[in-house]
Design a protein around this nucleic acid. Structure first.
Lengths: 110, 110
DNA sequence: TTAACACGACACCAAATGGTATCTATTTTG
DNA sequence: CAAAATAGATACCATTTGGTGTCGTGTTAA
């Protein structure tokens, strides 16, 4: 059984913290990591990292699997799609904006 | 001149709050809005909305322009690109993940 | 079987967050 | 000019956040 949690937490909130983004990145690159292999990457104690992991689990971004005495954590990137969808609404906007910026730069050179 | 601010604030943080996301949406759809036209959309006082606007400005997501006694606010979606870039790293993952999830479901049925 | 390890669960704390009400400055309107 | 509108600034408050240390429980290794 995989330790999936009910998605209690907002994905936007989960991703807002730089430590949590770093955890996401580490898990993306390492496939599966227990807490005690994550902790050394940060300037904080085991408990703090564990709390961040819990928040990521509540957002559905991390699932856990117990192997012996360790709990291996794995990234589940699916909830990030919500972010992607939200962004897609504004994607068109900033492309427009890039054109506008381009024009401004050209005008300045004249 | 446009009231752009130094981008003191994290874009991830700015976007984490639902009220601020709603403001972004309203500005995207209305081009330009003063505080007293934004406020009625929310179940909170003018001061609270004003504070959220300040945070959005600090993140570079909103620029202001004074017209008479009102300050008109405009969306600047450019900083959202940082979010988009961050996400792009995981975009591939969740497409892969759909396949992996499929495999997991098959393994469980055995 | 006992010692060390991994980690969740608490209790605790300072600082940040998200809201309020109030005061002040500026600009418009009657 | 006086009064109303718009909004920034500030003081204040409850709650949340992000960290700490400690304890208890299950798991592996000597």
């Amino acid at each position: 059984m995989m330790g999936a949690v009910a998605q209690t937490r907002d994905v936007y909130y989960a991703v807002a913290d730089p430590t949590r983004r770093a955890i996401i990145r580490l898990l993306a690159d390492a496939e599966e990591l227990p807490l005690n292999r994550l902790t050394p990457h940060f300037a904080m104690g085991r408990t703090a990292v564990s709390k961040h992991l819990t928040i990521l689990k509540e957002a559905g971004l991390v699932s856990e699997r117990k192997v012996g005495r360790e709990t291996r954590n794995r990234l589940n990137p699916a909830p990030l799609k919500e972010l992607q969808d939200w962004l897609s609404y504004y994607e068109i906007f900033w492309k427009q904006n890039m054109v506008r910026l381009d024009q401004l730069l050209k005008e300045e050179q004249e």
